[in-house]
């Protein structure tokens, strides 16, 4: 646990030393702000809810979350620091978990300023606090899953840009497009797309519906990709 926290702290330090961190945060907040205006969430007569904004958030996150985690492991490969890490008393699991928690904390820091919209809602209207709360829980769970996937992508290559593309393309294809594909297909394919439909699952959260099904889906997927990332980092031993 001490190693996990040491790696996490170092990773956060490096994240906030690089311009990418600030670009990512600024970009996310800018797009969110534009989305708030564009959906007219604060127009008179509209319900005091951020649901329209939240509908678009997972789309942005598919691109943005892999950008947070892309450097985590690939940079260690590229600079060779993986060699000094893996010859210190650190296990692959500790490395991956440390990197994961750092990326996740960064994600939460990035998300936090959007709470200002909720506060504004409260100032000008009478929002449904339960729905807001469950929306944020949903966003957090999306972060838990996407970060794990981004980290897995980062463990596959020593090139950050490749890691980023490996991160967002599958996420966009499976997690988000599934939302549209699901009504077009039949049979077992439909069942699969229903399961991986992140947008659909998140939509439940933004309506204020927290299901065990949904929570387990995000947590289990995250665990799966973290496990795979550990195995990929370990694979240098038998390659």
């Amino acid at each position: 646990m001490r190693n996990v926290s040491a790696i996490m702290r170092r990773e956060l330090l490096s994240l906030f030393c690089s311009p990418i961190a600030y670009i990512v945060i600024a970009g996310f907040l800018l797009i969110t702000g534009v989305a708030v205006l564009w959906t007219g969430s604060f127009s008179p007569g509209k319900p005091a809810s951020l649901r329209d904004v939240f509908f678009w958030t997972p789309w942005m996150l598919t691109v943005i979350v892999p950008a947070i985690s892309m450097r985590a492991i690939s940079e260690e490969y590229r600079s060779g620091t993986i060699e000094s890490l893996m010859t210190a008393p650190v296990s692959e699991l500790q490395l991956v978990l440390g990197k994961y928690f750092a990326s996740l904390i960064f994600y939460v820091i990035m998300l936090a300023p959007t709470l200002v919209y909720v506060v504004l809602m409260e100032a000008f209207g009478n929002p449904d606090w339960g729905a807001s709360l469950s929306s944020y829980l949903g966003l957090l769970l999306i972060g838990v899953m996407f970060t794990a996937f981004g980290l897995f992508a980062s463990s596959l290559t020593s090139n950050q840009v490749v890691a980023w593309i490996l991160g967002w393309v599958p996420l966009l294809l499976f997690a988000c497009l599934a939302f549209f594909v699901v009504s077009l297909v039949q049979g077992w394919v439909r069942v699969v797309f229903q399961q991986v439909n992140v947008i659909g699952r998140f939509d439940e959260f933004s309506r204020g519906l927290v299901t065990t099904d949904g929570v387990v889906f995000f947590l289990a997927t995250a665990a799966l990709f973290l496990f795979l990332a550990v195995k990929v980092v370990e694979s240098r031993r038998w390659r």
Binding site: A6, R9, R10, S14, C17, S79, G80, E83, T87, P89
Partner: peptide
């Protein structure tokens, strides 16, 4: 690993860290 100190050929370090920060980090790992 606890009894071996290793200096790899390429001397991999984190350029964004200060020397003290880096040594602190490595000390924590140990």
């Amino acid at each position: 690993r606890a009894v071996v100190g290793y200096l790899p050929e390429s001397v991999p370090l984190y350029p964004e860290m200060r020397v003290r920060e880096y040594l602190q980090f490595r000390g924590r790992l140990h």
